[in-house]
Protein backbone atom coordinates (compact mmCIF):
# COMPACT_ATOMS: atom_id res chain seq x y z
CA UNK A 1 0.00 0.00 0.00
CA UNK A 2 1.31 3.42 -0.85
CA UNK A 3 1.07 5.37 2.36
CA UNK A 4 3.59 8.09 1.63
CA UNK A 5 2.91 11.54 2.84
CA UNK A 6 1.66 13.68 0.00
CA UNK A 7 0.29 17.19 -0.23
CA UNK A 8 -3.19 15.65 -0.53
CA UNK A 9 -2.87 13.72 2.70
CA UNK A 10 -1.53 16.74 4.57
CA UNK A 11 -4.38 18.88 3.23
CA UNK A 12 -6.85 16.25 4.41
CA UNK A 13 -5.27 16.24 7.85
CA UNK A 14 -5.20 20.04 8.10
CA UNK A 15 -8.80 20.32 6.92
CA UNK A 16 -9.85 17.94 9.69
CA UNK A 17 -7.83 19.98 12.19
CA UNK A 18 -9.32 23.24 10.91
CA UNK A 19 -12.91 22.15 11.34
CA UNK A 20 -12.49 20.20 14.58
CA UNK A 21 -11.75 23.17 16.85
CA UNK A 22 -14.22 25.68 18.12
CA UNK A 23 -12.19 28.78 17.28
CA UNK A 24 -12.51 28.18 13.52
CA UNK A 25 -16.24 27.47 13.76
CA UNK A 26 -16.80 30.53 15.94
CA UNK A 27 -14.77 32.65 13.54
CA UNK A 28 -16.79 31.48 10.55
CA UNK A 29 -20.11 32.07 12.33
CA UNK A 30 -18.96 35.55 13.40
CA UNK A 31 -17.90 36.37 9.84
CA UNK A 32 -21.36 35.46 8.57
CA UNK A 33 -23.16 37.25 11.40
CA UNK A 34 -21.07 40.42 11.02
CA UNK A 35 -21.57 40.66 7.26
CA UNK A 36 -25.12 39.44 6.72
CA UNK A 37 -26.37 40.75 10.07
CA UNK A 38 -24.97 44.22 9.55
CA UNK A 39 -26.33 44.25 5.99
CA UNK A 40 -29.81 43.52 7.34
CA UNK A 41 -29.50 46.16 10.03
CA UNK A 42 -28.10 48.99 7.86
CA UNK A 43 -30.42 48.32 4.91
CA UNK A 44 -33.47 48.34 7.17
CA UNK A 45 -32.43 51.61 8.77
CA UNK A 46 -31.75 53.20 5.36
CA UNK A 47 -35.08 51.96 4.00
CA UNK A 48 -36.93 53.39 6.99
CA UNK A 49 -35.28 56.81 6.71
CA UNK A 50 -34.98 57.00 2.93
CA UNK A 51 -37.76 59.58 2.46
CA UNK A 52 -36.21 61.97 4.98
CA UNK A 53 -32.59 61.56 3.88
CA UNK A 54 -32.43 64.58 1.58
CA UNK A 55 -31.76 64.68 -2.13
CA UNK A 56 -28.00 65.11 -1.93
CA UNK A 57 -27.49 61.93 0.07
CA UNK A 58 -30.07 60.08 -2.00
CA UNK A 59 -28.15 60.89 -5.17
CA UNK A 60 -24.77 59.70 -3.84
CA UNK A 61 -26.19 56.64 -2.08
CA UNK A 62 -24.41 53.39 -3.02
CA UNK A 63 -26.59 50.31 -2.45
CA UNK A 64 -23.60 48.00 -3.03
CA UNK A 65 -21.09 49.36 -0.48
CA UNK A 66 -23.83 49.98 2.08
CA UNK A 67 -24.89 46.33 1.99
CA UNK A 68 -21.23 45.20 2.29
CA UNK A 69 -20.38 47.40 5.28
CA UNK A 70 -20.15 44.32 7.52
CA UNK A 71 -16.86 43.45 5.82
CA UNK A 72 -15.31 46.08 8.10
CA UNK A 73 -16.13 43.91 11.11
CA UNK A 74 -15.68 40.54 9.42
CA UNK A 75 -12.08 41.39 8.48
CA UNK A 76 -11.10 40.99 12.14
CA UNK A 77 -12.88 37.64 12.43
CA UNK A 78 -11.06 36.22 9.38
CA UNK A 79 -7.79 37.64 10.68
CA UNK A 80 -8.22 35.81 13.95
CA UNK A 81 -9.05 32.59 12.08
CA UNK A 82 -5.92 32.87 9.94
CA UNK A 83 -3.64 33.74 12.86
CA UNK A 84 -4.95 31.07 15.22
CA UNK A 85 -4.62 28.38 12.55
CA UNK A 86 -0.86 28.66 13.20
CA UNK A 87 -0.47 30.27 16.61
CA UNK A 88 -2.79 27.88 18.45
CA UNK A 89 -0.39 25.10 17.44
CA UNK A 90 2.34 26.97 19.27
CA UNK A 91 0.31 27.94 22.34
CA UNK A 92 -0.86 24.35 22.85
CA UNK A 93 2.49 22.84 21.86
CA UNK A 94 0.79 20.68 19.25
CA UNK A 95 3.16 22.03 16.59
CA UNK A 96 5.66 19.41 17.77
CA UNK A 97 3.17 16.61 17.29
CA UNK A 98 2.22 18.02 13.91
CA UNK A 99 5.86 18.21 12.80
CA UNK A 100 6.58 14.70 14.00
CA UNK A 101 3.80 13.47 11.74
CA UNK A 102 4.70 15.84 8.89
CA UNK A 103 8.39 16.82 9.06
CA UNK A 104 8.29 18.48 5.63
CA UNK A 105 7.67 22.02 6.80
CA UNK A 106 7.23 23.76 3.45
CA UNK A 107 4.62 21.22 2.37
CA UNK A 108 2.93 21.62 5.75
CA UNK A 109 2.62 25.41 5.46
CA UNK A 110 1.44 25.08 1.88
CA UNK A 111 -1.25 22.56 2.89
CA UNK A 112 -2.37 24.77 5.77
CA UNK A 113 -2.53 27.79 3.47
CA UNK A 114 -4.57 25.88 0.89
CA UNK A 115 -7.08 24.80 3.53
CA UNK A 116 -7.31 28.35 4.87
CA UNK A 117 -7.66 30.02 1.44
CA UNK A 118 -10.26 27.54 0.20
CA UNK A 119 -12.43 27.70 3.31
CA UNK A 120 -12.12 31.47 3.70
CA UNK A 121 -12.95 32.03 0.02
CA UNK A 122 -16.13 29.99 0.39
CA UNK A 123 -17.06 31.71 3.65
CA UNK A 124 -16.12 35.15 2.31
CA UNK A 125 -18.15 34.79 -0.88
CA UNK A 126 -21.16 33.31 0.93
CA UNK A 127 -20.97 36.18 3.41
CA UNK A 128 -20.65 38.90 0.76
CA UNK A 129 -23.19 37.55 -1.71
CA UNK A 130 -25.55 36.89 1.20
CA UNK A 131 -25.11 40.45 2.47
CA UNK A 132 -25.56 41.95 -0.95
CA UNK A 133 -28.66 39.96 -1.86
CA UNK A 134 -30.28 40.48 1.54
CA UNK A 135 -29.50 44.21 1.40
CA UNK A 136 -31.01 44.60 -2.07
CA UNK A 137 -34.14 42.66 -1.13
CA UNK A 138 -34.64 44.96 1.87
CA UNK A 139 -34.05 48.10 -0.27
CA UNK A 140 -36.35 46.80 -3.00
CA UNK A 141 -39.34 49.02 -3.76
CA UNK A 142 -38.17 52.01 -1.69
CA UNK A 143 -34.42 52.52 -2.16
CA UNK A 144 -32.71 52.18 -5.59
CA UNK A 145 -31.09 48.75 -5.82
CA UNK A 146 -28.07 47.35 -7.66
CA UNK A 147 -28.02 44.16 -9.70
CA UNK A 148 -25.37 41.48 -10.14
CA UNK A 149 -25.96 41.70 -13.89
CA UNK A 150 -24.00 44.96 -13.67
CA UNK A 151 -20.31 44.12 -14.11
CA UNK A 152 -19.01 46.66 -11.58
CA UNK A 153 -21.48 45.48 -8.94
CA UNK A 154 -20.61 41.81 -9.44
CA UNK A 155 -16.90 42.69 -9.26
CA UNK A 156 -17.33 44.59 -5.99
CA UNK A 157 -19.22 41.72 -4.34
CA UNK A 158 -16.77 39.05 -5.54
CA UNK A 159 -13.73 41.13 -4.53
CA UNK A 160 -15.21 41.78 -1.08
CA UNK A 161 -15.05 38.01 -0.48
CA UNK A 162 -11.53 37.88 -1.95
CA UNK A 163 -10.48 40.76 0.33
CA UNK A 164 -11.51 38.75 3.39
CA UNK A 165 -9.70 35.67 2.06
CA UNK A 166 -6.45 37.56 1.47
CA UNK A 167 -6.63 39.18 4.92
CA UNK A 168 -6.81 35.75 6.54
CA UNK A 169 -3.71 34.74 4.56
CA UNK A 170 -1.97 37.92 5.75
CA UNK A 171 -2.74 37.04 9.37
CA UNK A 172 -1.59 33.46 8.70
CA UNK A 173 1.77 34.75 7.50
CA UNK A 174 2.05 37.00 10.57
CA UNK A 175 1.24 33.95 12.71
CA UNK A 176 4.12 31.98 11.19
CA UNK A 177 6.49 34.83 11.88
CA UNK A 178 5.31 35.80 15.37
CA UNK A 179 4.00 32.49 16.76
CA UNK A 180 2.06 34.20 19.57
CA UNK A 181 -1.70 34.63 19.17
CA UNK A 182 -2.05 37.87 21.08
CA UNK A 183 0.98 39.58 19.50
CA UNK A 184 -0.08 38.50 16.04
CA UNK A 185 -3.69 39.65 16.39
CA UNK A 186 -2.54 42.97 17.89
CA UNK A 187 -0.32 43.68 14.91
CA UNK A 188 -3.08 42.67 12.52
CA UNK A 189 -5.64 44.95 14.19
CA UNK A 190 -3.06 47.71 14.44
CA UNK A 191 -2.36 47.63 10.71
CA UNK A 192 -6.05 47.77 9.87
CA UNK A 193 -7.17 50.33 12.47
CA UNK A 194 -4.27 52.30 13.89
CA UNK A 195 -2.00 52.84 10.90
CA UNK A 196 -4.80 54.66 8.96
CA UNK A 197 -5.29 56.93 12.01
CA UNK A 198 -1.60 57.79 12.00
CA UNK A 199 -1.78 58.53 8.29
CA UNK A 200 -4.47 61.12 9.00
CA UNK A 201 -1.83 63.26 10.76
CA UNK A 202 0.56 63.26 7.80
CA UNK A 203 0.63 66.03 5.16
CA UNK A 204 -2.09 65.71 2.55
CA UNK A 205 0.39 64.98 -0.25
CA UNK A 206 1.83 62.08 1.77
CA UNK A 207 -1.65 60.78 2.46
CA UNK A 208 -2.56 60.90 -1.20
CA UNK A 209 0.61 59.09 -2.17
CA UNK A 210 0.78 56.48 0.59
CA UNK A 211 -2.68 55.75 1.91
CA UNK A 212 -3.65 53.65 -1.08
CA UNK A 213 -1.07 51.04 -0.04
CA UNK A 214 -2.76 50.40 3.31
CA UNK A 215 -4.60 47.06 3.41
CA UNK A 216 -7.77 48.77 4.65
CA UNK A 217 -7.70 51.21 1.70
CA UNK A 218 -6.94 48.41 -0.76
CA UNK A 219 -10.05 46.72 0.62
CA UNK A 220 -12.02 49.94 0.25
CA UNK A 221 -11.05 50.14 -3.43
CA UNK A 222 -11.85 46.46 -4.00
CA UNK A 223 -15.32 46.63 -2.44
CA UNK A 224 -16.37 49.88 -4.17
CA UNK A 225 -18.25 49.51 -7.47
CA UNK A 226 -17.04 52.97 -8.55
CA UNK A 227 -13.45 54.31 -8.62
CA UNK A 228 -12.26 55.87 -5.35
CA UNK A 229 -10.20 59.09 -5.37
CA UNK A 230 -6.47 58.71 -4.61
CA UNK A 231 -6.69 54.93 -4.58
CA UNK A 232 -5.69 52.11 -6.91
CA UNK A 233 -8.31 50.55 -9.13
CA UNK A 234 -9.97 47.40 -7.78
CA UNK A 235 -7.82 44.92 -9.71
CA UNK A 236 -4.55 46.69 -8.91
CA UNK A 237 -5.61 46.80 -5.25
CA UNK A 238 -6.25 43.05 -5.39
CA UNK A 239 -2.76 42.44 -6.79
CA UNK A 240 -1.05 44.68 -4.19
CA UNK A 241 -2.88 42.94 -1.33
CA UNK A 242 -2.01 39.53 -2.80
CA UNK A 243 1.65 40.57 -2.97
CA UNK A 244 1.53 41.50 0.74
CA UNK A 245 0.10 38.08 1.54
CA UNK A 246 2.68 36.26 -0.58
CA UNK A 247 5.55 38.22 1.01
CA UNK A 248 4.37 37.58 4.58
CA UNK A 249 3.70 33.89 3.97
CA UNK A 250 7.06 33.46 2.25
CA UNK A 251 8.93 35.12 5.12
CA UNK A 252 6.84 33.09 7.56
CA UNK A 253 7.61 29.81 5.79
CA UNK A 254 11.30 30.62 5.62
CA UNK A 255 11.64 31.31 9.35
CA UNK A 256 9.40 28.33 10.09
CA UNK A 257 11.73 25.94 8.26
CA UNK A 258 14.82 27.34 9.97
CA UNK A 259 13.65 27.68 13.53
CA UNK A 260 13.51 24.99 16.19
CA UNK A 261 9.95 23.89 16.75
Amino acid sequence: MNRDISLGSIVRSEWLKFRSVRSSITGVVLTLVFTIGLAALISSVVRGHWATMGTARQLTFDPVSSSLVGVLLAQFAVGVIGALFVTSEYSSGSMRTTLTAVPKRIELTFAKLLVLLASMLVVGEVACFGSFLLGQSIYSGVVPTASLSNGATLRAVVLAGVYLTLLSALAFGLGLIMRHSAACISVFVGVLLIVPLIFAFLPQSWQNAGEKYLPSELGHAMVSPTPVANEFGPWTSLIVLAVYAVVLVTIGTTVFTRRDA
Binding site: I5, S9, R12, S13, E14, L16, S20, V21, V102
Partner: peptide, 16 residues
Protein backbone atom coordinates in the same frame (compact mmCIF):
# COMPACT_ATOMS: atom_id res chain seq x y z
CA UNK B 1 -10.24 21.90 22.08
CA UNK B 2 -10.04 18.84 19.86
CA UNK B 3 -11.44 15.43 20.75
CA UNK B 4 -9.04 12.54 21.23
CA UNK B 5 -10.44 10.77 18.18
CA UNK B 6 -10.14 13.85 15.94
CA UNK B 7 -6.60 14.44 17.17
CA UNK B 8 -5.62 10.91 16.16
CA UNK B 9 -7.58 11.07 12.92
CA UNK B 10 -5.77 14.24 11.85
CA UNK B 11 -2.43 12.52 12.52
CA UNK B 12 -3.57 9.38 10.72
CA UNK B 13 -4.83 11.34 7.70
CA UNK B 14 -1.49 13.07 7.20
CA UNK B 15 0.30 9.72 6.92
CA UNK B 16 -2.48 7.90 5.03
Amino acid sequence: GRSARNHLRALAASNR
